[in-house]
């Protein structure tokens, strides 16, 4: 597992005018890993993630995602990743079933596969009674779980989650992380940003971004040792306080 990197980033930089949002970051993520991508608001997490998903073209630096170059092969990358953005991104005026059907369809699944997926997800998420409900009528926690399921509907190599549990209650958050573990066990690499430090503890490895740079990268256990802290919360505060820029 350790020897099979699926994301390789080298000195990746994104500049908007004079503002350097992401400042030469380098790291690797291995297959099946749950990689926590931490940082204060405005540290550059989302920008970095958007570049890795092929949504944003880097100013400089190199990166390969699922073996494909992020400059030349964005369309190949898109076939092999899932993405769940900060903004809720299912169609609220479509039903649960229709949303799964639509995303499965545009990822190229065939009729039978789509049918199986819908059945599986509806049962797995306990949405049997809500499968024909418009998504806008679902509670936020359910929506987020559905959005995650839809983001991995095509069994991608990597899934990018941008603050997937923002605003979600602790019980649902726990369930959400169980889903993440399930996906990880299936071999899907998880790249997740979060502001909840208890969630950071669940990750295999964690990077902490400050002002566009990665200030620390290791397993939660080692980070706590190195920074002589008892919790990830303390580690994060120690690093994030050094930030000179805010939102």
């Amino acid at each position: 597992m350790k020897n099979e990197p699926v994301i390789v980033v080298e000195k990746l930089t994104k500049q908007f005018g004079n503002f350097i949002a992401v400042d030469g970051i380098s790291f690797e993520v291995n297959k099946g890993e749950i990689f926590g991508f931490l940082g204060a608001n405005g540290a550059g997490k989302t920008t970095a993630m958007r570049m890795l998903c092929g949504l944003s073209i880097p100013t400089s630096g190199k990166a390969k995602v699922a073996g494909f170059d992020i400059y030349q092969q964005t369309e190949n990358i898109k076939k092999n990743i899932g993405y769940m953005s900060q903004k809720f991104s299912l169609y609220e005026d479509l039903t649960v079933k229709e949303n799964i059907n639509f995303y499965a369809g545009i990822y190229g699944l065939n009729e039978n596969q789509i049918k199986d997926k819908i059945n599986y997800l509806v049962h797995h998420l306990h949405l049997q009674h809500q499968q024909n409900t418009l998504v806008k009528a679902l509670p936020l926690g359910w929506k987020q779980k559905l959005a995650f399921s839809v983001a991995i509907v095509h069994d991608p190599a990597i899934v990018f989650l941008d603050e997937p549990t923002g605003g979600v209650d602790p019980v649902t958050r726990r369930e959400f992380w169980e889903m993440i573990y399930d996906a990880s066990e299936k071999g899907i690499t998880i790249f997740v940003t979060t502001h909840y430090m208890d969630e950071a503890e669940y990750c295999n490895r964690v990077s902490i971004m400050v002002d566009g740079r990665i200030e620390a990268l290791d397993s939660p256990k080692k980070l706590k040792q190195n920074f002589e802290c008892v919790s990830m919360d303390e580690v994060f505060l120690k690093l994030a306080r050094k930030a000179t820029r805010s939102e």
């Binding site: 898109k78 076939k79 990743i81 953005s85 991104s89 299912l90 545009i106 990822y107 190229g108």
Partner: peptide
């Protein structure tokens, strides 16, 4: 944005 990360 979700559409843009798909291979459509």
């Amino acid at each position: 944005e979700q559409i843009n990360v798909t291979p459509i």
